[in-house]
């Protein structure tokens, strides 16, 4: 399959700190690619690189075969690369629907030029997340897990080709995690290419088509999820040397 998004030998160094150091990754079209690693392993820096929030010290970022290493982040979104953030980033004084509409405001979509068409599109994204009945509410009135789904709906409203999800289940209850897992499973079924950043290895094992593991800014392993997760180096990174030995 074709790689729609790729990192080629990218490095991000902040002074002496090597947040990402020579990492190469490629996302296959239509697949759910999980990027896991312990805290501070460089996962968020990697997703920030892909969405052009940080500049690489070296290496290239390719989107749909084109070098986008120096393309401004707003242009990447318009080309079809959407993302969510680790923390909830919704505007509390707007309704849920208005927050989702914000994902459409910068796009020139032929089938969403009229206000009513944009509203329909925002509602369709909310319906896809099964939260259409919250459209008129303010995000602060909603549970954390639903706010997260509003964010995903906003990212999906523009019909992106790739969705980057930065720890979408961080801080969630078991029920909320189950909901998000269901959402991701459904989006995968729709053929959406996704990169799921997560530090909980168990959460991604049932969802991902491909697993990459980062540790100390370098790529530890990459491949079929179950096989990769079983590698001693990966288990050591997650559980520590003593547990692996035991």
């Amino acid at each position: 399959m074709t790689a729609i998004l790729a990192l080629e030998e990218v490095k991000v160094h902040f002074g002496g700190v090597k947040a990402v150091d020579g990492v190469s990754l490629s996302l296959r079209q239509g697949a759910l690619h999980a990027l896991v690693g312990p805290n501070g392993s460089g996962k968020t820096t990697a997703v920030n690189l892909m969405s052009r929030l940080v500049d690489p010290t070296a290496g290239r970022v390719l989107f749909d075969g084109t070098d986008v290493t120096r393309v401004p982040r707003h242009r990447l979104y318009r080309r079809g690369l959407a993302r969510t953030f680790q923390g909830i980033r919704l505007l509390d004084d707007l309704t849920v629907r208005e927050n989702v509409l914000a994902g459409l405001d910068a796009l020139d979509l032929p089938d969403a030029r009229k206000a009513s068409q944009r509203r329909d599109r925002a509602d369709a994204a909310l319906a896809r997340m099964e939260i259409l009945d919250t459209a008129g509410l303010e995000p602060s009135a909603l549970p954390y897990g639903v706010q997260r789904r509003v964010e995903i709906a906003r990212a999906l409203a523009g019909d992106p080709r790739v969705l980057l999800l930065d720890e979408p289940v961080a801080g969630m209850s078991a029920g909320e995690r189950r909901d998000i897992a269901e959402v991701l499973h459904r989006l995968k079924g729709d053929g959406l290419t996704m990169l799921l950043i997560e530090h909980d290895l168990q959460f991604v094992l049932g969802l991902a088509d491909h697993l990459s593991v980062l540790n100390f800014g370098t790529l530890l392993a990459s491949g079929e999820p179950q096989t990769t997760a079983a590698l001693p180096a990966v288990r050591e990174a997650f559980l520590g040397g003593e547990h692996v030995a035991a």
Binding site: R73, H74, F85, R89, L101, R118
Partner: peptide, 21 residues
């Protein structure tokens, strides 16, 4: 929508950029 854009620019520039602004 221009008002929403302004609000995003005011409250969260990073998000604004990530939403194509």
């Amino acid at each position: 929508g221009a008002g929403r854009r302004q609000r995003l620019l005011r409250e969260d520039e990073v998000l604004a950029g990530a939403l194509g602004i």
